[in-house]
Design a protein around this nucleic acid. Structure first.
Lengths: 329, 329
DNA sequence: AATTAAAATAACAACGTTGTGATCCAATCC
DNA sequence: GGATTGGATCACAACGTTGTTATTTTAATT
């Protein structure tokens, strides 16, 4: 079928092992023959067979990502960044949109060097060990120590947000986010909201905790509208659980002709550049996307080289103050 | 490292070729030894090495998809369906979010059996041949015959829409879509709109062709609002270029308290089930998503088996009438 | 019990690479 | 000028499979 190293060898009149060395630019081959072989190879359109190569080297230069079929801006941005960074180290990133188990199985079949699992975005949080000979890295919560995990410390981030607002003198603070208990990642944020509020002497009443059906803009919009329309109960500050929800909220705020931050302060989870480019630059909390991408990449590279890594990397969220938050009155 | 066929052979006290046959359930091995070997294999946690297997069989049971980093509902749904269908034939689908060239290169490296290219969603329409030993299938426009292509015939779909509206007596029909000339897939729709309108004796004035910056909901929403707010020039019918734009339009329609279809008729490109589940069931044109998925899957399977396929599959769009379109007045 | 056919298993060559050790040939040394 | 380097090339064994051929074992037949 395709042209192999042996075909090149025959054509160039040398042994195939010499061709192998020449192609890998080994110093064991003289410049002259190297050049000749390279020429012949190019002429014949030689393409190395990576399967054979990997069979002996045990390296595929590929990272598998178990990709939830969810479309959230932040996650897309994250995976894009990771992909770019890995490329610099000559790794290729491949995504699977299958269920976690079969995705992992597929990646084992094609022998990727490491697997990144987003844990988890569809309510099927993983607590049992999938079968994998290949090292796994989780992006999620560190409270189950089964696997190496990168944890963005969502709870701490929300605490930061509450603190900030309370110190600005806000009394009536509402949290809008996915409050279903299915997704532990969201649960964590809600818990932190309640706990921090309480610890600062504020009780969280029912109407201060808004459950959206989802993390996307539409649910954000409708929930927000509901909250803001009731003037007597309108909060002076809102914490949004994600970038998309914030977008929805902004739309609602616009429609009701409210001014940010004089009428209402807004702070959002997700520390991503886009946050500064909204109608109003939004104060945000969270680990900077770039930092997360950096750490995940670093861990993946280590895992790919079969190096031991610390089981949990817990990242420190930051508060970045923009113009969407101000003193209450 | 991991346990191989030879390890199992040694443990079971047979030759490794017998193990190979036993594992592949060959009739050349007696039931008894087969059972014994299977047991030993399971006990030792034997996992077949697919690279080695593929090296001889030349089959990876994997399809590569060049995935634009675009997030459009229709495309996600399409790829999800294709993935499911391929799974039934024991193929795994893997996505790459790299640029077309490097994605194809990566898929050649890991030796997928066929590659599906979405041509194209980012303005870098492909007209030059990428280097690939692996068969490619394009989903896009059939007018460049370089590669096997599945064409959803977007132009014809829009014609269907115009026809329908004109026959309902609409005079003032506006098209909202991505009118940038960068993406030939969108260009095709616009051209068809103008041509069909003209052929039916209607001239398309500037304000009847709305350019959104993008195909997503936000641009859809703002463009729509602009169009609808100017009461004197409000169209009696609108054709939307995509599902997402339709969602945006619906939002605008709601805000202005317009009634569908009495105040305005709406018809949308994208023949997907979700279209029936919007606020108002939307009349739609296009090839049913399922049909597209079916054909793409079929072609990919043929390509994977190195069979020759017809170079272009042109699918026939359908008009599905729901409650969003009615007679004018 | 010896012969033969059939069934079961073992041995071995592929697949396309890499890496190690074995050969070759020229140039250098005494 | 024969022994000795040492650089360049070659031959060959891996890697973990599959498939073909050769060998052994078993059972059937006389």
């Amino acid at each position: 079928m395709s042209v192999t190293i042996k075909d090149v060898a025959k054509e160039a009149g040398v042994s195939f092992s010499t061709v192998s060395k020449a192609l890998r630019n080994s110093p064991l081959v003289t410049e002259k023959t190297k050049r000749k072989i390279l020429n012949v190879a190019k002429e014949m359109g030689y393409q190395p067979n990576n399967l054979a190569r990997s069979l002996v080297s045990k390296k595929m230069w590929t990272i598998g990502v178990v990709w939830p079929s969810v479309e959230r801006v932040t996650l897309s941005a994250l995976i894009t960044q990771i992909n770019t960074k890995l490329e610099e180290y000559s790794y290729t990133t491949l995504l699977s949109i299958n269920k976690v188990d079969s995705a992992i199985e597929a990646f084992n079949r094609i022998h990727v060097d490491a697997i990144l699992v987003f844990d988890d975005l569809e309510g099927t949080f993983i607590r049992t060990a999938p079968i994998s000979n290949i090292p796994l890295l989780y992006y999620g919560i560190s409270d189950h120590q089964i696997y190496p995990t990168v944890d963005a410390n969502r709870g701490k981030a929300i605490s930061l947000a509450v603190d900030h607002l309370v110190h600005l003198g806000h009394e009536h603070i509402t949290y809008i986010g996915d409050v279903s208990t299915k997704d532990p990642l969201q649960e964590q944020k809600v818990e932190a909201f309640i706990k921090t509020m309480n610890s600062l002497g504020k009780t969280v009443e029912d109407h201060m905790l808004i459950r959206t059906s989802d993390m996307d803009l539409y649910s954000g919009y409708s929930s927000a509208k509901e909250v803001l329309q009731n003037e007597s109960r309108r909060p002076t500050a809102v914490i949004c659980g994600s970038y998309d929800i914030t977008r929805g909220l902004l739309r609602a705020v616009n429609e009701l002709h409210l001014k940010i931050p004089s009428d209402i302060s807004i702070i959002s989870y997700d520390h991503i550049p886009q946050m500064a480019e909204l109608d109003v630059p939004i104060t945000a909390v969270g680990v900077p996307l770039e930092t997360i991408a950096d750490h995940i990449t670093k861990q993946l590279l280590l895992l790919s080289e079969k190096k031991e890594i610390s089981n949990v990397v817990s990242l420190d969220p930051e508060l970045i103050i923009r113009t969407s938050t101000a003193n209450n009155r």
